[in-house]
Design a protein around this nucleic acid. Structure first.
Lengths: 180, 180
DNA sequence: CCACACATGTAAAACGTTACATGATTCG
DNA sequence: CGAATCATGTAACGTTTTACATGTGTGG
């Protein structure tokens, strides 16, 4: 049910259509909660039934009509309730770790290449996060409220990518040393 | 299908029953791939059908019989094939980030408490990992092959927990400063 | 005698991914 | 004229989670 709450947060920040939400889940929100448009439309349907959101059909000029969703009073109450509730730490599932642990049962060279490939991905993602940080939060000291919270989540992304990058480097160095 | 490969890796390290695998997924393997006993029994069934593992029933003294699984030749080949194949980076889904980003729409104090709770969890897990590191890998420089790979996966866990811990501290400090 | 470890499963519900499906407008 | 963007969905399939289900032996 977490997707529903991620949608509530996003709609609280700004009301929007399913399509607009899908765009947001491709970028900002998507950096910490990914969802496809199919999931989003399905969830919105459910959330209308639960009366967590209301839906207004808006006719547009030279574009298809869209349905603008906004958080209802009971949706806001439900979000507040969920925010105060403890959550379990997520189950760990790291496919790359499985490959590293099993490397000896296959071609270790190929596994090392895979690690290098992941390294590049983390490097790119880190560059994106850092660009957002510089552009949107040039003076983090003065932030408060919603902006501070957005910044802190971005900081989590930066820290995670930095950590993954350093780990990939450690693996690559150790595997190279082992090979020689 | 990744669970199947995690099981193949574990059975390559040592043959065992479904129950024993479930225990391993509660600790060592579980630190980077979690799975319940229901999932494991279902996967083993499928893997027998695919002929990736063979199964011997072993009668035990004063204990229920058990089925010992071991990787077959075709299972070993399948694992080697999968190891060389690239995988997509996993979809990000961080519930705590959703709560932080949405904190302003509820009781920020309660969200901060939740962050503190997670911080304790990461701290405990880090202590466990560090204990394993000291006990099992006192001289990491000399490691090679399977042991090196196990060590590198453990290093990933340590780095992740350290990173999460530092992030939680950053959040708590910033939220405290914002409140005052 | 009760709880815990050993040992193996089934079934239903929730959730996620992939494929299919449609149709308008804008930009090169 | 074809590709991209806007806009919304359905259906099938696979995986994961949660609950249910059963039975033996050991130690306190």
């Amino acid at each position: 049910m977490s997707l529903e709450y991620a949608i509530l947060v996003s709609l609280q920040e700004r009301a929007g259509s399913g399509y607009e939400l899908a765009r947001r889940f491709d970028k900002s929100i998507g950096y910490f909660w990914s969802a496809s448009h199919q999931q989003i439309y399905r969830s919105l349907k459910r959330m209308v039934e639960l009366d967590w959101v209301s839906c207004d059909e808006v006719a547009q000029d030279k574009r298809p009509d869209k349905k603008v969703y906004r958080v209802s009073e009971s949706g806001a109450a439900e979000l507040a309730r969920w925010l105060a509730e403890p959550v379990d730490p997520p189950a760990v599932r790291n496919e790359l770790s499985v490959k590293i642990r099993g490397a000896s049962f296959g071609d270790t060279e190929r596994v090392a290449e895979e690690v290098a490939r992941h390294r590049r991905g983390h490097d790119e993602r880190l560059a994106v996060y850092r660009a957002i940080e510089e552009r949107d939060f040039p003076a983090p000291q003065g932030l408060s409220g919603q902006q501070l919270h957005q910044y802190l989540v971005l900081r989590g992304g930066i820290r995670t990518e930095e950590s993954m990058l350093a780990w990939c480097d450690e693996i690559l160095a150790a595997m190279r040393a082992d090979r020689d």
